[in-house]
Measured scan of single mutants.
Amino acid sequence: MSIQHFRVALIPFFAAFCLPVFAHPETLVKVKDAEDQLGARVGYIELDLNSGKILESFRPEERFPMMSTFKVLLCGAVLSRVDAGQEQLGRRIHYSQNDLVEYSPVTEKHLTDGMTVRELCSAAITMSDNTAANLLLTTIGGPKELTAFLHNMGDHVTRLDRWEPELNEAIPNDERDTTMPAAMATTLRKLLTGELLTLASRQQLIDWMEADKVAGPLLRSALPAGWFIADKSGAGERGSRGIIAALGPDGKPSRIVVIYTTGSQATMDERNRQIAEIGASLIKHW
């Protein structure tokens, strides 16, 4: 067993022997301040990774656009098919120029040779490549099948209805392509620590998230040296922004954090800054 596999296998073990965790309302004060600064709703939840206990939450059962955070769930569904012998990570998928959609920095470079399922998941999570996500959605049967996968996990809230990039439209009061912070946090925890996926697939999923290259201005910008984070960000229309993450000190994750916002007129930089400040408060009061 590799060191990384050992780390993920012992996530519940280490967490069980940690000192009790206590909620700190100071972080919620910052979440509410972010709402004021952005002029928009902000949803927040913080779960203990081992027990699933909610440590703090704000608007945990209000719907927010998922945006690209759905790509972690998508690759979880792909990995479940791999575990069941219905898919192979090494299978190569070929596609054409007509398949390319807006923001496809990886797939646009491989029109000639195609990409493997493993490479597509890596591109979808680490670079948020939209064509990679659409190609992977095709392998599982489309958005409705991802929703069905989530329902089978016990998540009857999260739903995907459309493809990239239309799913980022974020129309107010439109339930399409949305989740709730509580539902997303619980589902992410199941994917990373539950028995739904094999140990190898859980490790692969967290490795992809740990290698995320496009979430630097968010929670990662607030992390002290030595902290662990595996995350996936999302951005959408109407001032929408979000991030889902597993993080913790001492090089291992111990909490799940989900943050979503929508309806702001603020710039992307300002949305990023507010999420980073929430992260800084979380870490300060850990």
Rank of each mutant, 00 (worst) to 15 (best):
H24N: 14
H24W: 04
P25M: 12
E26M: 15
E26T: 15
T27E: 03
T27N: 08
T27C: 02
V29R: 04
K30S: 15
V31H: 14
K32T: 02
D33L: 03
D33M: 01
D36P: 03
Q37T: 14
Q37H: 11
Q37W: 11
L38R: 01
G39M: 15
G39I: 10
G39Y: 02
R41G: 07
R41T: 13
V42Y: 06
G43R: 01
G43F: 14
G43N: 00
I45F: 00
E46H: 11
D48R: 09
L49G: 07
N50W: 04
N50R: 05
N50T: 07
N50Q: 02
N50S: 10
K53G: 12
S57T: 13
S57N: 13
R59Y: 02
R59F: 10
P60D: 09
E61H: 12
E61K: 00
E62V: 00
R63E: 11
M66V: 01
M66N: 07
S68H: 00
T69D: 08
T69Y: 00
T69A: 04
K71T: 01
K71Q: 00
V72G: 03
L73D: 14
C75P: 09
C75Y: 01
C75Q: 14
G76R: 01
R81W: 08
V82E: 15
D83E: 10
A84E: 15
G85C: 15
Q86V: 12
Q88V: 15
L89R: 06
R91A: 06
R91F: 14
R92P: 02
R92T: 06
R92L: 04
I93T: 01
I93P: 02
H94G: 07
H94L: 13
H94M: 06
Y95I: 02
S96C: 00
S96I: 00
Q97I: 11
Q97T: 14
Q97D: 08
N98V: 01
D99M: 07
D99N: 06
L100S: 02
L100Q: 01
L100D: 04
V101E: 04
V101W: 15
E102F: 13
E102S: 05
Y103E: 15
P105Q: 15
V106I: 12
V106E: 15
V106A: 13
E108F: 07
K109I: 00
K109F: 03
H110Q: 01
H110G: 01
H110E: 10
H110L: 02
L111V: 01
L111Y: 00
T112K: 07
T112I: 01
D113R: 00
D113Y: 00
G114W: 00
G114R: 01
M115K: 15
M115R: 08
T116A: 00
T116W: 05
V117G: 08
R118P: 07
R118E: 04
E119R: 12
L120D: 01
L120Q: 00
L120I: 11
A123I: 15
I125F: 01
I125R: 00
I125D: 02
T126E: 01
T126K: 00
S128K: 00
D129M: 00
D129F: 00
N130S: 06
N130D: 03
A132H: 02
A132V: 10
A133I: 00
A133F: 02
N134H: 10
L136R: 05
L136S: 14
L136W: 05
T138K: 14
T139D: 07
G142P: 08
G142F: 06
G142Y: 07
P143N: 03
P143S: 06
P143D: 03
P143L: 08
E145S: 05
T147F: 07
T147E: 05
A148V: 09
L150H: 15
H151E: 04
M153F: 04
M153H: 10
G154D: 13
D155H: 06
D155S: 05
D155Y: 09
V157W: 06
V157G: 11
R159F: 00
R159N: 00
D161S: 05
D161C: 09
R162G: 08
R162V: 10
W163E: 12
E164N: 00
P165L: 05
P165M: 06
E169G: 10
A170I: 09
I171C: 06
P172R: 07
D174E: 05
D174Y: 04
D174S: 04
D177K: 07
D177S: 05
T178N: 15
T179K: 01
M180E: 04
M180A: 06
M180T: 12
P181D: 01
A182S: 06
A183P: 09
A183S: 06
M184N: 07
T186G: 07
T187M: 11
L188H: 04
K190W: 14
K190F: 15
L191E: 05
L192N: 12
L192M: 08
L192P: 14
G194V: 08
G194S: 11
E195G: 05
E195C: 00
E195D: 07
L197C: 04
T198A: 13
A200W: 09
A200R: 13
R202K: 10
R202T: 08
Q203V: 07
Q203W: 02
L205I: 08
L205P: 09
D207P: 05
D207N: 04
W208L: 04
A211W: 07
D212R: 13
D212N: 09
V214N: 07
V214P: 14
V214I: 15
G216V: 09
G216Q: 01
G216S: 07
P217Q: 11
P217E: 03
L218A: 09
L219Y: 02
S221R: 07
S221D: 15
A222K: 12
P224N: 15
P224C: 05
P224F: 08
A225F: 03
A225N: 13
W227A: 08
F228H: 02
I229F: 04
I229A: 06
A230Q: 13
D231V: 06
D231F: 04
K232F: 01
K232I: 15
G234T: 09
G234V: 02
A235Y: 04
G236V: 04
G236R: 03
E237T: 09
R238P: 04
G239T: 08
G239A: 13
G239Y: 14
S240N: 06
R241L: 06
I243K: 01
I243F: 03
I243L: 06
I243G: 08
I244F: 12
A245Y: 10
A245S: 10
A246N: 09
L247E: 03
G248Y: 04
G248V: 10
P249H: 07
G251W: 05
K252I: 09
K252M: 10
P253K: 14
S254T: 09
I256D: 01
I256M: 04
I256C: 12
I256T: 07
V257Y: 10
V257W: 03
V257G: 03
Y260Q: 03
Y260L: 07
Y260S: 05
T261V: 11
T262W: 07
T262C: 04
T262L: 06
G263M: 07
G263A: 12
G263Y: 15
S264A: 04
S264E: 03
Q265I: 11
Q265P: 09
A266C: 11
M268P: 02
M268T: 04
D269E: 08
E270W: 14
R271E: 11
N272S: 01
R273N: 06
I275G: 14
A276C: 08
A276I: 13
A276G: 09
E277Q: 12
I278R: 11
G279T: 07
G279Y: 07
A280Y: 14
A280K: 15
S281T: 07
I283H: 07
I283Y: 15
